[in-house]
Computed example of a mutant assay.
Amino acid sequence: MIELLNTLRYKSEGPDIDFKSAQYRFNGATELDKSEMLKDILAIANSWRDSTGYILLGFKDQRPHPAEVVGIRDNIDDAQIQQFINGKVKPKLTFRYEEHLYEGKTVGVITIPKQKRPFYLANAYGKIKSNVVYVRRGSSTDEAEPTEIAAMVNDDSGRGDIRLGLTLIAPNNEALPSTFARTYLEFTEEFPDYKKARKPSNPFEFRADSIMERDNSYFWREYAEYMKVDEALIAVQFLLLNQSGVQLTNAKLEVVIDALDDQRFQLLEASEVPTMPKPQWNFADRLATPPYVLTSQNSSLLIDDENESKPVVHVRFGSLLPGEQGRSETLAIVPQGIGRLRLRMRILGGEIATPIEEEHFLEATGESQSLDFEGFRQFVQRKLASSKLRTTE
């Protein structure tokens, strides 16, 4: 929300945004006062716009400069506003009200997605007439003409309720199972530097490999980290299908994972998953490959781990046309022991007034192994022998 407010305050008032320097008079207010909020919400809901509309409370418009943050003093509960608005407006209007701390001050945000119009009151209330369609034009509110109302109905004839399908899959496009048998490795000692056994060198013999290659002294430690992740990894991708008759804009998924049995786990983006290390550094390879790769800042899957105990996975799908499907990059879940995991997911979008919440459960089974260096080498040898056996079968 902070990101959104940073953007909106630089916009000018128009059919999709209205700045209010003070909170609406609501609690204990007269019908005339409360009708101010009602009229503004109706006008934004009926306005001609391409995306979600907003009424920002606690912001003072000072064009051409960004809106000044002045804050609000009085608090209003969303449930009260919902009951008040939808007890009077026809048909039912989808919106939400939230209060946030922004730049040290409390501000209010009324979010109104695009939806079927027109909206009106069956009975007069305060300064609002019955059966009149109010619409926002530019930064002002006016009564819509009959031809304009007809155009609203025609323009929104294909617009329906937002219907979405969220699916979790494996990277190979198969359905994600609910149970995963894995091996969870722990190491009981610091592994030594790697040194390749070599024959005594002939001082009169020229060897190109001695110049081009150097031992990777970190190999055993890197290999241990690679195996620890590879043996326990659960790879997940998210598919979001827009099953509605209207485009969904700014589609986003938020995922929080809970360890239901108090086991530890790690979350990694696909680019962070370790790859199999090499025992030697090859000088020619290092010349051919950059020492680092800049990752895109517009990745569709990002892990926000500022709160280490509850990292949040953010998946951005952008805009999805009716029938279109968005697919995320891979999320690597790395349990460090057996136990159940709960994925709490929230789907957000420009046309969704209240986030859609879903849950998915996974169970990590298998065995844990504590290995010293020699035990790890034996473990690797068994894995390699098993892999060769499967290849020859």
Rank of each mutant, 00 (worst) to 15 (best):
P290N: 02
R342A: 15
E363C: 06
L348M: 15
R377W: 04
A353L: 03
R316K: 13
G375W: 00
A364I: 04
R346T: 07
S300F: 07
R346N: 13
V313T: 08
T289P: 03
L302K: 12
S299T: 13
D372M: 04
L331S: 04
P290A: 07
S296T: 05
R316Q: 12
G337M: 02
H314W: 09
S299I: 00
L321K: 04
G339H: 05
S328I: 04
R377L: 12
L341W: 01
A353K: 04
F376S: 01
V312A: 03
T295Y: 05
L321I: 00
L348A: 13
F317D: 03
F373W: 10
L341K: 05
R327N: 01
L362D: 09
N298F: 07
G350L: 01
Y292N: 11
E324Q: 12
D304W: 06
T295D: 07
G375D: 01
E358L: 15
G339S: 02
P311E: 08
Q325K: 09
L294K: 15
F361S: 04
E363M: 14
R346S: 12
G326H: 03
E308M: 09
P290R: 06
V334R: 01
L331G: 10
L371F: 11
G350K: 10
L321T: 06
R344S: 14
L321V: 01
S368L: 09
E358C: 11
A332T: 03
D304H: 09
P355C: 12
P335F: 02
E359D: 13
D305Q: 06
Q297D: 13
L302T: 13
V293R: 10
N307W: 04
G349P: 08
L294E: 14
A288D: 12
M345F: 02
Q297G: 14
S299K: 05
H360Y: 15
T330Q: 08
G366Q: 08
F376T: 08
Q369G: 00
R342Y: 02
R342H: 07
R344D: 10
E357V: 12
E308A: 12
L294N: 12
S296F: 01
L371H: 04
Y292R: 12
H314S: 11
L302Q: 14
G375I: 04
P322A: 00
P290T: 10
E351S: 05
G326T: 03
E306C: 09
E308W: 06
T354D: 14
G337W: 03
T365L: 10
G323M: 08
R377H: 03
L348E: 12
F373R: 02
E363T: 15
L294G: 11
E308S: 14
Q336C: 02
S370H: 06
D304R: 08
A288K: 15
P322L: 00
G366A: 08
P355Y: 10
L331T: 05
S368Y: 05
P311C: 07
L301I: 11
Q325C: 11
R316C: 09
S319D: 14
L287N: 10
R377P: 00
Q369V: 04
V334A: 01
Q369S: 08
G326K: 07
P291D: 13
S368P: 07
I338T: 15
E324I: 02
P322G: 00
A288Y: 10
E308V: 13
G337E: 06
F376A: 00
S309R: 15
F376I: 00
G318S: 09
